[in-house]
Nucleic acid binder design. Structure first.
Length: 603
DNA sequence: AGAGGTGGTG
DNA sequence: CATGCACCACCTCT
């Protein structure tokens, strides 16, 4: 292995004067590839101060003192799309540079995302330390790199040296990863991911507003109902427990902790003699006892309060007054995003009792454009398999689950099928979703409430009706087991750790790989389409000079916040771009997106 | 601190 | 007999 620098004595200069800064820029301007990193006092770009910006050539690292020098002079260099910028976790640096200096970096190679693509499904160790150790066999001191947090005083020489190293290592890592990306035919998907970074960063920086007053009132309403339910349950079960405890005020204390499944199991089995295997809702649903019914209702309320209550309001940024969730660009091994702090991808769907989504509202003068792909995963299945029955249903604009039911149960499809045969449609819907993920007859039977033999019959009928679907699923499963990976149309791969033949769980593990091998190309293709759409949309914002931005993405949905007078036009653009994105690889079955203009997050 | 149970989303 | 995919948050218990 050859390095252009000595890991023990990296070639760097700490730039603190305008004269040195100018010389550094002159050197950097000549280069085609640069490595970039920033050291900040906080992860939150609205709270942080930038201390250092390191920009390196393969031989030399310039550590720029951001507190002394005018960092806006870097704008031309970093926005120059002919220069490739190497970064580790570039979303972070993009956000910091954008927030502080209005610099929008382009042409990024992100070593963290590259590593994620190269080891998807196998490893999740994508830190710079892990990557450098893997490719260069060098150990970086993580503690030094973390020590900038909250730091306001003088930066030490040791910190500067390690800051310099952090960028120098990116060149040899880049070369090895680039070679591997080409070898694994991952260049296309890597380009997509690298282009998506700035879209995600801009989305996070923009954030979104929440009507805190309304949110709070929803919570209070739920709490009131929950407390009533809890009191009722405690009252009902009190006679079953001998020891009567008093609380500090002489009132009757709670008999058990309703949130403890241990104590709940004891209640149902020992006290009530109901023999339940677990206390989950799918079990309690069939327990014929008033306490079970009350518990289900209590649970539903408690869930909403604990998971979505005050905790979300605590995430409102003090500076911006908005929520800035953290999106993980390759959060799932399938290629999907994940989201946390808070996870806006799991906010409950709008309901009367808990209208959470309608609490997310555009700023005055703006509207939301909410768009999603319709029946995307089923359309992808139709496209992959070329199944005429499925494709016809989509081309006719039919409800796909109703159409499935009609074919399976020998009925005629009519526009009011859903009304006439809701049970048949529900069964078909469960099968459509379940079977493409490898569901078995047992689970299917429980889900749709029939015996196992009947469920088996449904499965047979389904696969007779959709022969090509069956053939595709079987071959996807075989492919994954045979090759040790699965793949989406644009070449995104997910690898599988193959079990040893002698493993006592061998069959079970292979079964898991088969199911994931069926699911990944479908779920991953959806993710690929959504990512292309995000990239296209950011382009359109610039091209059309539309006032607004992307605020959310939820797997097959994209939400934008657009100035009121431009929202209707944008809705058309958004729909077109989403369809164009998915249309890049869906040829046999055309994708469909639906966009609406709304004054809250609802659809 | 980490595991397991439960349940919210697509 | 097990065994539908992908996540994240919150709770209790050890």
């Amino acid at each position: 292995m050859s390095l252009n620098f000595d890991p023990d004595k990296p070639n760097y200069s700490f730039v603190t004067t305008d004269k040195d800064y100018k010389e550094a820029l002159e050197d950097l301007e000549k280069r085609k590839v640069l490595a970039v990193d920033t050291e900040c006092t906080s992860l939150d770009p609205f709270e942080s101060k930038i201390l250092l910006i390191q920009i390196a050539t393969p031989e030399k690292s310039y550590v720029l003192d951001a507190r002394k020098l005018d960092m806006k002079l870097l704008k031309g260099l970093l926005e120059d799309s002919t220069k490739l910028k190497l970064l580790q976790n570039s979303k972070f640096d993009y956000s910091q540079l954008k927030a502080h200096y209005d610099i929008s970096m382009t042409n990024i190679f992100d070593t963290m995302l590259a590593e994620r693509l190269l080891t998807c499904g196998l490893e999740r160790r994508n830190s710079l330390g892990a990557i450098v150790e893997k490719y260069l066999n060098i150990k970086l001191k993580k503690e030094v790199r973390k020590s900038f947090e909250g730091l306001m005083s003088q930066v030490t020489e040791e910190q500067i040296r390690y800051a310099a190293m952090d960028v120098l290592v990116l060149f040899p890592v880049f070369e090895k990863q680039w070679e591997l990306l080409q070898k694994e035919d991952l260049v296309k998907v890597a380009r997509l991911e690298f282009s998506t970074v700035r879209v995600v960063a801009e989305m996070e920086l923009r954030g979104l507003a929440i009507d805190a007053i309304k949110w709070k009132s929803v919570i209070v309403g739920l709490q009131k109902k929950r407390d009533e339910l809890a009191a009722k349950i405690q009252e009902t079960i009190r006679p079953l427990y001998k020891i009567q405890q008093m609380d500090l005020f002489g009132g009757a204390a709670d008999v058990i902790n309703l949130n403890s499944q241990q104590q709940l199991l004891e209640l149902f089995n020992d006290k009530l003699g109901l023999a339940v295997a677990s206390t989950g809702d799918s079990v309690l649903e069939f327990v014929n006892h008033p306490v079970a019914a009350l518990m289900r209702e209590y649970r539903a309320h408690e869930k909403l309060i604990s998971a979505f209550g005050e905790s979300i309001l605590e995430k409102i940024n003090k500076r911006t007054g908005r929520i800035h969730p953290d999106f993980q660009q390759i959060g799932a091994d399938t290629g999907r995003f994940s989201c946390n702090n808070p996870n806006l991808q799991q906010i409950p769907r709008e309901s009367k009792e808990a209208p959470f989504r309608s609490c997310f509202v555009p700023t005055t003068g703006y509207k939301y454009v909410v768009a999603d792909y319709s029946s995307m995963e089923m359309r992808i299945v139709a496209d992959f398999t070329g199944d005429e029955n499925l494709i016809k249903a989509f081309e006719e604009g039919w409800d796909v689950h109703s159409a499935t039911a009609a074919l399976m149960f020998n009925k005629e499809y009519t526009p009011d099928f859903k009304k006439k045969f809701p049970d048949l449609r529900q069964a078909a819907k469960t099968i459509n979703f379940g079977l493409v993920y490898g569901m078995g007859p047992g689970r299917l039977a429980v889900q749709i409430g029939v015996d196992t033999d009947t469920a088996k019959g449904y499965m047979t009928k389904y696969f007779e009706t959709f022969k090509q679907v069956k053939a595709w699923l079987d071959s996807a499963a075989r492919f994954a087991v045979k090759n040790g990976y699965s793949m989406t149309p644009i070449g995104r791969k997910r690898w599988y750790q193959m079990p040893d033949k002698s493993d006592p769980n061998y069959d079970r593990l292979i079964g898991g790989i088969e199911r994931q091998g069926k699911n990944h190309p479908i779920q991953g293709a959806n993710a690929d389409a959504t990512k292309y759409a995000l990239v296209f949309l950011l382009e359109k914002f610039k091209e059309l000079k539309v006032d607004g931005g992307i605020i959310l993405t939820v797997h097959d949905e994209i939400v934008c916040e657009i100035r009121e007078d431009q929202a209707e036009d944008w809705a058309k653009v958004q729909q077109e771009q989403m369809e164009k994105a998915a249309g890049l690889f869906m040829k046999k079955c055309k994708p469909k997106a639906e966009a609406i203009v709304s004054s809250n997050w609802e659809h």
